Amino acid sequence: MALVLPVAAVGGEVLRVLTWPGYADPDLVKVFEQRTGAKVEVTFIDSDDTLWQRINGNQSQDFDVFAVNTAELQRYIANALVVPIDTAQVPNLAKQLPRFRNLNGIPGIVKDGKVYAVPYTFAEMGLIYDRQQIKEPPVSIQALWDPRYRGKVLLYNGASHNFTLAAQSLKDPNPFQLKESEWPTAVNRLIELRRNAMGFYSQPEESVDLFKRKQAALLFANYGSQQLQLLKAAGVDVGYAIPQEGALAWLDCWVITRGAKNKGLAAAWIDYFLEPEPSNALVKRQGLANTVAAAPNMRPQDRLKWLEPVESAPRRSLLWERILAGDRASKVLAP
């Protein structure tokens, strides 16, 4: 399929891309360069903090387009570091799955009627279980607290996500915004979860090693299908389940900076990465889901709960550190 660019996009231009490893592989970038005559300079980042520093450091003047999750996106919009996207310049939006075509239905993408981001890839935080120890797929996140799995649950070491998980297990309608009265209950819930834990991980590869070596029964998969793919490749007999409450999920989107030199060229980049070849590369190479084809490990009825900004990331981090240290609730909640 030919890539149609606006008149302003001519050969010899440079497109400056800031993104995550696996999102802009050299062979895919080369195709875009051949089609447009533009040169693409890709810079990779490895954390949300680094992404913020690179974009905010020079008021978004150093890059044209970057990838960011919907929760993080909000501070870029608030600080006028990104600009609305002309969706007419991204015709492949029409090829996305219904849940991604409905941009108004995804928190944080549309503001004041303007579209600030185009969904690209996502990972849901499902439950991975050892088929030899758990015969039936767990249907609820309550399984993480099941006393039958005491000392057999492998958890993600992430303050924000774990407080959201606890609030979700308590049926909080908005687990991203804890009210003052809800903190004690959430803390007690996480202390209960800590007692079920066999250990905590930060990176996908680390979780595979711990799962195999310590013979975990259940894993809260912060990296979702990516971890499932790694565990299966390691020869572990595992299953995967999306909890009935809905799986927490991060959604990475392409956005255009305020400092973009050629916004039409940036839009063309976004449109290209919604084509089948780049989209399928996410699945085959990274174990991630794309937005144009159904994820292989999800059923139509499975629900996702997109991450949103939380009420206080610093407070969640402080209390989580105390919970990990083994403190009682009264000490965890102390000023």
Rank of each mutant, 00 (worst) to 15 (best):
R213P: 01
V14S: 08
P21Q: 12
L103D: 13
E182A: 04
S160H: 07
I109N: 13
V65C: 13
F273A: 03
G151N: 01
N58P: 05
R322Q: 13
I242N: 15
T291D: 06
K39F: 11
N188T: 00
E192S: 14
L282Q: 00
P278Q: 08
R195S: 13
A217V: 08
L154D: 02
Q59E: 14
A8V: 13
M1H: 09
L193N: 07
D327I: 05
A268P: 02
R299C: 06
L51V: 10
Y272N: 08
E192G: 10
R303N: 12
L170Q: 10
L324R: 10
L28H: 06
W52M: 13
G246E: 11
P107I: 11
M298G: 10
G151C: 08
A217P: 03
I128C: 00
K111M: 09
A186W: 03
Q227L: 07
K95R: 12
A268L: 05
L282I: 01
P296L: 11
F220D: 11
T87E: 10
E33D: 11
V7T: 10
A9T: 15
R150L: 09
P276G: 11
L319G: 02
Q96W: 06
G235L: 00
L193D: 07
A216S: 12
S47D: 10
V29E: 06
L93I: 12
L73D: 11
I85F: 03
T19D: 11
L324W: 06
G126C: 14
E245P: 00
S60D: 08
L3G: 07
K179N: 04
S160I: 13
V42N: 06
I77Y: 01
I85D: 04
V83H: 01
E275Q: 15
A197Q: 08
A233Q: 08
P107E: 15
Q229T: 01
L103V: 11
G239R: 00
L155P: 01
R148Q: 15
D46G: 10
T185I: 04
P175Q: 02
Q177W: 03
V14E: 15
Y116V: 11
D27K: 09
P184A: 08
E182T: 02
F63Y: 15
K305A: 13
A293S: 15
L73K: 05
L274M: 09
D64C: 05
A166K: 05
L265M: 09
L155I: 06
G108D: 11
